[in-house]
């Protein structure tokens, strides 16, 4: 018991320590690397600068896919808007064969699902697993969570075995945002399923800032909705907040290698905003308050 207590205190100290530590992606052989952008579709200079920085960072961190957390196209959605708000800002990445995987935000027409470069397979919600990886991604439509989507999610998660389970969608289930805050109603429906099936990582947008939330029930939560929109001062740091930034535009780079997920959050000027590593520990007994598959926690990185 005493040893457990000491270990818990040590873990807490260590978890805090990781915040101050600069951890860069280790670029391990056979790892899965991806970028994340959110609330990106303005077509303005901020989106262009983030797009340019993303492309520049790819020279350092080769990644093959980009997750989009929604609000992919603000305003009109004519053919020229797809160009202005998507293909032009990310042209170097698209030309290099990087695949974008979109989820729908509240500013998105559901027919975006038919746009092939968004890789949604014609569906509002979908799942995919990169070749030779142990990571399965799930894009949800958090605007419209009906029985059918819930049944689909249950089925797909149940079939996903011991893979890393990464969810991405628009509304953050936990957030310290002053404008929106936590999406409680979506959380009520989704979190029990995430916990039951051992989801490891949830990435959302909607809030126009960056926030890394303390792991909740064994699940890591990131919010990134500042790839073209920004609400300065809207992050009301709370007990949820592990790290936050509402002072500029940015994106995330992530790498999953074995049981570790490494992350970097970068600004459009390549400033490192946050970095660290999330570690999956072994299986645990399922409880309502804790993920039934590997628990997620931050720990100091043993990276070069």
């Amino acid at each position: 018991m005493r040893r457990l207590l000491i270990a818990s205190i040590a873990t807490a100290v260590v978890s805090s320590a990781v915040l101050a530590q600069e951890v860069r992606l280790p670029l391990k052989e056979g790892s899965i690397r991806f970028a994340v952008i959110g609330d990106s579709g303005t077509g303005d200079g901020h989106q262009l600068r983030v797009g340019k920085q993303l492309a520049a960072q790819r020279a350092r961190v080769p990644f093959d896919l980009v997750l989009m957390t929604g609000d992919n196209l603000y305003g009109m959605e004519r053919a020229r808007d797809y160009e202005k708000k998507f293909t032009i800002p990310y042209k170097p990445l698209l030309d290099a064969g990087v695949k974008f995987y979109a989820s729908l935000g509240n500013h998105d027409d559901t027919n975006q699902r038919l746009y092939k470069p968004f890789n949604m397979g014609g569906e509002r919600y979908y799942t995919f697993k990169p070749d030779r990886s142990s990571v399965r991604f799930f894009a949800l439509d958090s605007n419209y969570i009906d029985d059918k989507q819930i049944a689909w999610l249950e089925k797909e998660l149940a079939a996903s075995g011991s893979d890393w389970k990464v969810m991405f969608f628009h509304h953050p289930l936990y957030s310290s945002g002053g404008t929106h805050g936590s999406a409680d109603l979506q959380r009520e429906k989704l979190e029990p399923i995430f916990v039951k099936h051992g989801v490891n990582l949830v990435i959302a947008g909607h809030e126009h800032f960056y926030e890394r939330v303390k792991p909740q029930k064994g699940i890591a939560y990131f919010t990134l909705g500042s790839s073209a929109k920004l609400r300065k001062g809207d992050l009301k740091r709370s007990a949820l907040t592990e790290k936050g930034w509402d002072d500029g535009y940015g994106f995330m780079l992530m790498e999953i290698a074995g049981d570790d997920l490494y992350f970097e959050v970068l600004s459009d000027t390549a400033q490192l905003i946050d970095s660290g590593v999330v570690h999956r520990t072994g299986k645990v007994a399922p409880t309502p308050g804790r993920s039934s598959q590997p628990v997620v926690a931050t720990k100091p990185a043993s990276v070069p």
Binding site: G75, D109, L185
Partner: peptide, 14 residues
């Protein structure tokens, strides 16, 4: 076209 698609709360939808 430019109007948002407002979120329908899951509890209501169900």
């Amino acid at each position: 076209e430019s109007a948002t698609r407002p979120t329908v709360p899951a509890a209501v939808l169900m």
